[in-house]
Design a binder for these strands. Sequence first.
DNA 1: CTGTATCCTACCCGATACTG
DNA 2: CAGTATCGGGTAGGATACAG
Lengths: 135, 135
Amino acid sequence: MMVSEQFQDVFSQLPAEIFGRDCPTRPVMAQVTGRWGALIIAALAPGPMRFSGLHQHIGGISQKMLSQYLKSLVRYGLVERLVEPTIPPQVTYSLTPLGQSLAQQLCTLLSWFTANTPALEAAQQRYDAADSPTR
Amino acid sequence: MMVSEQFQDVFSQLPAEIFGRDCPTRPVMAQVTGRWGALIIAALAPGPMRFSGLHQHIGGISQKMLSQYLKSLVRYGLVERLVEPTIPPQVTYSLTPLGQSLAQQLCTLLSWFTANTPALEAAQQRYDAADSPTR
DNA sequence: CTGTATCCTACCCGATACTG
DNA sequence: CAGTATCGGGTAGGATACAG
């Protein structure tokens, strides 16, 4: 399979700036590629969700982190926060159009990882088996 | 534009497991989506590179972090390390086929960020302007 | 040139408790 | 239900010096 052609396309579009120390994408990347960013956005991809829904859907996340990441994502215009003035209050989160377009990229990336996890784990075990026996 | 159709496809392929607390993808994701993972892989996308080449190409990375990330990426079978037994030694890093396929996803993601940085920054300023004046 | 070793700081993140 | 406040541990990451 000719990977290289299609390949050249993708990376050649990247401006040299993204490697720069002060590239403006870095703070955003830090959030999205942070521990929970991608998972939260992926969880919202199917549709809007409540705070508690997200909390139990994403295994292992704490209220604090969920709240913190959501605030960031709202700030970047990726997620929308909708408050229903009821008692008790209901807050619904959903992806903005911008967030949806990002979600596609992220879901593709997540798919890649799930598809290639066997290969990654195999490589890992090969590597670990290579020179630790001497120890 | 009908985002939703193509959209449903992408996320619906995601197994519920990726949201699980013990999903095996999490440690790998942590490395790749760590602070330097994506940039290193993207930097290697055009072709093999030496250690010093990477070091000066990726702004702000320290030797320690570069070395550490490279070791991890080699361990996962994403990057290959080739040592020329010369003096002084020359070490060349390149992407494995597995790494190349990941690089495509990552470069696409990086492209998304560079393309949408204006929108992200605008949203951010709108958000910050909304209620900080009261402070 | 290509790393490793050491020290040190910052902050990420979790646990818990509390508010409206 | 949907958060915020506070405390504390673990670790990512930088600076520097040193080694092969």
